[in-house]
Amino acid sequence: MDLIKVKNVSFSYPTKKDTLKNVTFSVKPKSFTCIVGENGSGKSTLLKCILGLNKGYTGEIIKEKRIGYLPQKSEIQSHFPASIEEVVMSGTIGNNIRSIFYKKEDKEKAKEIMETLGIYDIRKKCFADLSGGQQQRVLIARSLCATDKIIVLDEPTNGLDPSIAKQIYELLDSLKKTKGITILMVSHDIERALKYADTVIELTDGKVIFNGKPQDFHIGGESND
């Protein structure tokens, strides 16, 4: 069973027509899928449609209910007083939406994930004071709190040093291999995407122009679907 199925999806913003044109693809369990493409090719828009943040698309999207999400950096967070623990815990919010307080199982899950990602010992530190790479690690931990199946990441290595970006890719790769987490990410770092992903999708002007294995990928290449 595919975790995400996107069928003939088109989407227009009020100010920008045809941001997505007839996009079709699916995400298999335990895969590492990278969506690549130039800025403005519709990558982030596509993620937002999948996550239900963009309404009013045409076509069909079938998806796993519990998806962990790592959005692009927001300005608010750079001054936000929040501890690592608070940020990671907030990932469990969708698990028990009705309850007033965090449940014990949520706390245990958050603790386990923080330990796995090596941030449990610094959990009282302020999120805003962390380095860019550490912040992404915390946000990945938060997204894992929301799901044990699939996480969706929007340019998680944007603005990071190449060596730190490599660590993030390696972390995602190991989450896939050891925990069976499916990864769907958007990136314009094609070189790394090709190295770590097992499926690459290229978008240009809102259209899928390639969907296949990284070894078959040529920049600007034809779809072999």
Binding site: Y69, P71, F80, V87
Partner: peptide, 23 residues
Amino acid sequence: FVIYYRKLFAVTFDEDFAKASGL
């Protein structure tokens, strides 16, 4: 405020994530 504390935090810190979580 107390009842919605946890959700207010999630929405204030990251509205898109909160929405994607079903809030």
